[in-house]
Design a protein around this nucleic acid. Structure first.
Lengths: 173, 173, 173, 173
DNA sequence: AATGAATGAGTATTCATTCAT
DNA sequence: AATGAATGAATACTCATTCAT
């Protein structure tokens, strides 16, 4: 891992566990074992570091989820369940960013794009069962998953999460 | 409105529209038209001001919703819909606080209490329809509402909100 | 002398002897024996401190020179001579500010105003001797004085200054 | 133009238009289209770069002016007038350097040498007209030219400059 | 000669908090 | 209760300079 990657990694960890505003460049540099100045060699400013960090992470996290063609609810829910448990802190950071009034538009756009991809996926999968209501049902399912996510990152309880997702799988699959 | 109330009001507005970390005591005092020092006469510190502000607001906001005995889904959804539109910024602040790793425990506890009251309410209302699954269905409904809330405060679209809630009313009532 | 005045005094001394860009707020605060933060209680920023400092000083320095009604060349040259010797550093700072491409417009305007007052004065005094050429002769005299000033603040030599001004008095008075 | 010359050219332009302290090595390197490190291959440090840049420029600028043997006021004023209009920014930089308390002694010496060459020239030309006062008249003429220069670089007005120099030519030639 | 990653000291500015009045 | 001067630590960011390649 080169220094730039070390900085991104340190930033991700600290942003995720303490929040963006609460994390100073100084702490990031210290955790990455580099000088403060080097951060500004690789990133324009703190906001740029956040944007790169999030883009980097989101891309990695979701590439697996959406690349398969023959995706179904069972597969989706299981993958999402795993990701949520593995990346709890990062996903909480994303929730904070989505809800924060001053989040850079690049990040908002990225997260928004993801939302629409999921809506598309759900709409397709719900077409048979709900016909003309497929789209609104997709919206509701997405909301349900977002709510479960919010609940989990706030108060992580893997057992309960598994139970709920299992129930959803049976309901939708 | 006395000075203490003016400070609370100013704090609420600024926390809600800019975020807690991004709001300085100085700006709050200026908006409330009082001196910076007075804030520390009435509140122990910035965190205390946040706690009091949120307690104050949450209590006001939810008292109407949960005081009625004979509440049903139609009524609940309509009230929630109105509140969401009226208090968008404040509710977004609550989402931020729920998801933030450093939120004071008093606030977490308060918001958690609300969650459980809603779960109770939903469980009761869903008893007939879902029997032994009433509790998990209540959890899912709560998650759905949280997800709708998150979506709305992030990207407020009253028309779509109305459509979704209408659909939910027909589904659940 | 209260703290605000102490800051202005310290700023004046350091700006004058080291230059604006070369003087840090930290050094100013240390010389004034106050905390760095206090500077920002009294002045919006470093530029504002410069502006206030210069306005303050220029006003004091020139009020004596131009208040008299019956001013003549002998009096003017003698006063200017004294001021130049007493305020060498400050006047050098003004030269630097006049010539610097990024000097705040408030300061430029102030120094420009002074220039025009002097031009007026000289024009009047030279009217009899030079008739229709009085204005251009005033411009030339002002340039001469500026040049003498530049030479003196760069390389202070009181004897030579006295000699030159004496010669000018005889020439013009 | 080789890389070293490109750096000198970029430095000159930036020092002249923004000031020495306000110009970073980084900006110079970027404008010269070379790496930051290369600056330190060719110049010991930033100050050295300034010294070389100024020496280079001054030499070029004044070689034409003083090489002729049979120079007279008419010729001198015309040449100076042209140079002032063409090199306004650079000459302003020289004024800043002359007046700045921390200018490297090499530069001061260079500019001082020029001053004395001009004094010599003027003394000679004024010998016939002013006899024993030729030297002090030369000093005054030099001051006048310096003042005109200061005024012009501060507030460039070619028409007025021409008028004043024309007047001086008639007065002295 | 040429690059650009890397450093460390420095800079302006902010801000929660205290305290004398 | 109310003010605002005062503090000191923290913060994002800059920059001259070095050095391995």
């Amino acid at each position: 891992m080169n220094n730039k990657e070390k900085i991104i990694q340190a930033a991700l960890e600290l942003f995720a566990s303490n929040g963006y505003a609460e994390t100073s460049i100084d702490k990031i540099a210290k955790r990455a074992n580099v000088s403060k100045g080097l951060t500004y060699t690789h990133f324009k400013n703190k906001e740029d570091l956040l944007v790169v960090t999030i883009e980097n992470t989101i891309t990695k996290m979701t590439s697996k989820l959406l690349e398969r063609e023959d995706i179904d609810f069972r597969f989706f829910f299981k993958m999402y369940f795993k990701s949520l448990i593995k990346n709890t802190q990062i996903i909480r950071l994303c929730v904070l960013l989505v809800a924060h009034p001053q989040t850079p538009s690049k990040i908002s756009a990225l997260l928004d794009k993801q939302k629409h991809e999921l809506l598309e996926l759900f709409s397709g999968l719900l077409q048979n069962k709900f016909k003309e209501n497929a789209k609104i049902e997709a919206e509701i399912l997405l909301a349900t998953i977002d709510g479960i996510t919010l609940e989990y990152v706030t108060n992580p309880n893997p057992k309960n999460l598994k139970k709920v997702l299992q129930y959803l799988i049976e309901k939708y699959a």
